[in-house]
Design a binder for these strands. Structure first.
Lengths: 212, 212
DNA sequence: GTATTTCAGTAACTTTTGTCACCAAACTTA
DNA sequence: TAAGTTTGGTGACAAAAGTTACTGAAATAC
């Protein structure tokens, strides 16, 4: 059994044998290094990317600001986009790898066929739709209801969770960009949070202090 | 041909005859008066609502604040929620009728069957998913990137478009709630916008001034 | 090594937004 | 009609966030 086949079966635990064969034969695997675009806002896609391994950040750009929408992690099957599934429109967000990331590219034409042929495929894709929507909704709630200080704490906690480590390597500039604000604001708030012992600012990384 | 059948065919222009029959026989029509909840955040749904006529506001609540996510209008077929489609979770937003609204309730059990049986049904639902996602994304971009003044102008323009009328009947309190801010702020900004001839504040409604 | 770039800190100031307090007009209900 | 409610206006102030300008340390490029 090929490595690809094993990864695929981990990603789609209840997949039909026949669909698995079709995916293997018609899709391509890609390894995208850390910090590269997977898709860029405004471009067109003719494949449906599924993340097998790694970590991807979804961004949106508006009015010169590029901010973080949510992360996509390889938990079961993870689709990145369902844009352009049935209509050829430019996508409205970008995806950047946060680590070296392995993706599987399903050709859009085949995807349409599989929707008809394999009910399990439809269910998996729909479930992922829903997860992306809810992640976005969560971000929206954060932005509307909380001030930057709270959003920063939340951002760092999320980051720690993804990296499974409380020592977070991220610059103030990057945080500022992700939250849609300016570096100085982040510097000011980290200082404040440091005084309340929520974190320690080290050289080029932030240590989150976990209480009890 | 019943009124229901005509409305249904307008809503699903390319529906299979067989699916149409199934929908008619297993779904219920409901007319929900203006200002009522269709679904309430935190509740569970066992049907998929499709809006045939009227106007619905999607809200989210977080930290005592209830703010507007986007509108759903009866343009082609409009699903309100795809939450709970495959898992029994509490929904994370509310829907309130902005006008008297006619909806069709598809039983969730049947919906699952139709996904397998009718490819056109899958396509329609997915397309609606995508639209909801993009509307939400648009709201998020607005909130992150623009100040309240700009968001207010945008809000009023959207409202005028939906009502097809520049005389907008809405209170400052309602606007404040929709945008996630306070009444005083809206009063202050409408005053400012009035001085730049973008609008006129009448008794209990706002007239948008359309330039050229 | 030196030069350049990236990164973080910070003070001072402005703008934006939120909050409190209070008023008056208009509408609703008894 | 009287009482209560909703609505909008507004000043004063506070808090949050954005901006400008400058600093020095650390990392990286040459």
């Amino acid at each position: 059994m090929s490595v690809e086949r094993i990864e695929l079966s981990q990603c789609f635990p209840f997949i039909e044998k026949e669909l698995e064969d079709e995916i293997i034969s018609s899709s391509t695997f890609k390894i995208i290094p850390k910090g590269k675009y997977v898709v860029k806002q405004g471009s067109y896609m003719n494949f449906l990317p599924i993340i097998l391994d790694g970590l991807i950040k979804m961004y949106a750009q508006e009015d010169q600001v590029e901010f973080l929408l949510y992360y996509i992690r390889p938990n079961e099957c993870c689709i990145l986009s369902f844009n352009n599934l049935f209509n050829q429109e430019a996508i409205r967000f970008s995806a950047i790898t946060e680590e070296d990331t392995k993706i599987l590219c399903l050709p859009m034409k085949k995807v349409k066929e599989w929707f008809v042929k394999y009910p399990s495929f439809t269910r998996i894709i729909l479930k992922n739709f829903q997860r992306n929507y809810e992640d976005l909704l969560n971000t929206t709630k954060q932005v509307v209801c909380y001030k930057i200080e709270d959003r920063l704490v939340n951002y760092l906690n999320e980051k720690a969770k993804h990296q499974n480590c409380n020592m977070i390597k991220v610059s103030h500039k990057q945080i500022a960009s992700d939250l849609g604000t300016s570096r100085e604001v982040i510097s000011r708030i980290t200082k404040k949070l440091q005084s309340t012992s929520l974190l320690i600012q080290h050289k080029r990384h932030i240590e989150l202090i976990v209480s009890n």
